[in-house]
Design a protein around this nucleic acid. Structure first.
Lengths: 196, 196
DNA sequence: ACCTGAACACCGTTCAAGT
DNA sequence: ACCTGAACACCGTTCAAGT
């Protein structure tokens, strides 16, 4: 990263222009991605995103080497927001209620674009993926909600957050084909977490 | 169907040969499909199935107009077996245990081929699909396990079988990326179903 | 240094020609 | 009547040429 700074400092006009263009294009691409996902679903082609952004396909591939990388970049904002929500809910509500409410919002976020839950799931479960790394802080923050509830004895101690998140992810995916199913499914999930 | 019988009866040698060849090919294709799914996953192309069967692509499309139709045909046997298992478990076990055991087996069946749960899910949830119709009897038989448990008061009365099956489907899908997660997830699911 | 888009390799599907 | 496979339309990705 240090090298880049030096390059920018000592660069001639044209090169500098390129760098700010590149930054601008990155934003253009993210906006275009959101619009394209909204219209065609999260499995839209990078070609479609390029067309929407008014840029060449090559430019998309330069900034986001794979469709997954673009998904990850778009989801980063959502993960930050969900992390904040977890911290906020921890202050405001009793642990079990906070966890239940957070899971509900998590499912809602994964439902923003058609196909998003489907596309995100494999990466969400793969510790080696960029997306997995990208949601680390969110996972940690929400994981504390579970830990709190378990310490209080209101949630059974033999489940880990990985399982909980995976089930929520699965509910989001099922809700994609049947939106009305999310609420009853989450109700069963949260009841299953509670101690007896 | 009556017309077909007449055709077969009054048909010349060549035509009859064609009909028995067609039946033979259908079986060849189903065998090839199972082998191809086992090797490449349930989202294998019809081209790959044709190659494995030693038949032209067109023949596959003649027998199974879409990839979904082929999946449906392959799953039909599984659905029959799962229906029988539901009836058997109903005789042998207490309602909640029977339901739990059946869900476990359902998840196992959907895990037979990589990608099977993913491919089957949308159709499983679409009442208009051929696959949905094809698993009607299975759904009815397993639905009685739930009804029994609810009548006994051991399972909460406010969930319908659609939600239960959807969750099991979701667990199967999640298990695809993380096989070890199926058991703890099912444990949470079944606990969530129980009355308190 | 960055961007473009034609070119490439590949996919699923169709349908004219053959048996 | 059924089967074949070349032909078609389309996809995601790369990379030589341009600015």
């Amino acid at each position: 990263v240090g090298g880049e700074v030096v390059t920018a400092r000592s660069a001639p006009r044209g090169e500098r222009r390129d760098r700010t263009d590149a930054v601008r294009n990155r934003h253009k691409l993210l906006d275009a991605a959101r619009a394209t996902y909204a219209e065609f679903g999260a499995d839209a082609s990078l070609k479609a995103v390029a067309a929407r952004a008014g840029l060449g396909v090559g430019t998309v591939y330069r900034h986001f080497a794979t469709p997954e990388a673009l998904i990850e970049a778009v989801l980063a904002d959502h993960f930050t927001e969900l992390q904040n929500r977890a911290e906020q809910l921890r202050r405001e509500k009793a642990p079990v209620d906070a966890l239940g409410e957070w899971l509900d919002e998590f499912v809602t976020h994964l439902g923003e674009y058609r196909g998003l839950a489907r596309v995100a799931m494999p990466q969400m479960q793969d510790p080696g993926s960029a997306l997995f790394a990208s949601c680390h802080d969110m996972r940690a923050a929400a994981g504390e909600l579970l830990a709190d509830a378990q310490q209080r004895g209101s949630v059974r101690g033999d489940v880990d957050f990985r399982t909980v998140l995976m089930l929520a992810n699965a509910v989001a995916l099922a809700a994609e084909h049947d939106p009305g199913a999310a609420t009853p499914a989450l109700s069963v999930l949260i009841d299953g977490l509670k101690s007896r």
